[in-house]
């Protein structure tokens, strides 16, 4: 209930939106700032800021962000303007487009990788399979 003294650990500085584990968002979600996802998002997800999808998060959506860190499940394509960090617990079913991609050992990616740089476009259209 509201009014109880709880330590929710949500004081993340610079975070505008937190999709916690007790909610599910359905539709075309658009944000200007930084977003943390710990719950569920279905539809599409766009932000001009940083996106962090924690372990336990479920995203069934096409995602667009300036920078992103994925540690949960993502079913859909992801387009990141700058850097995408794929953590060891991530499971991505979809195509990835980013300027820089860091993939941790243990992450699962099934989809195409496309990387863009200022000098041109590097394309790697091979299916990655499990990266263990």
């Amino acid at each position: 209930m509201f009014g109880k003294n709880q330590n929710m650990e949500t004081g993340d500085s610079g975070v505008d939106t937190i999709v916690g584990p007790s909610v599910s968002v359905e539709g075309n979600f658009k944000g200007d700032g930084n977003i943390i996802i710990e719950g569920e998002v279905r539809g599409s997800l766009k932000t001009k800021g940083y996106l962090k999808a924690s372990e336990g998060s479920v995203i069934v959506a096409n995602v667009v962000a300036a920078d992103a860190e994925i540690a949960g499940q993502l079913s859909g394509n992801i387009k990141v303007k700058n850097t995408l960090d794929v953590k060891a617990t991530a499971v991505i079913q979809g195509d990835i487009e980013a300027a820089v991609i860091n993939v941790a050992g243990g992450a699962i990616i099934n989809g195409n990788l496309k990387m863009k740089s200022e000098t041109g476009e590097k394309s790697n259209n091979q299916e990655e399979g499990e990266n263990k």
Binding site: F2, N5, S22, N28
Partner: peptide
């Protein structure tokens, strides 16, 4: 453009102009 649905583990909801709750935001 979207709906926010509480899941089973949700307990309370609020819309705040001024944070009068003890939640940290």
């Amino acid at each position: 453009d979207y709906n926010i649905n509480p899941r089973k583990n949700n307990e309370a909801v609020g819309i705040y102009n001024i944070n009068i709750s003890n939640y940290d935001f």
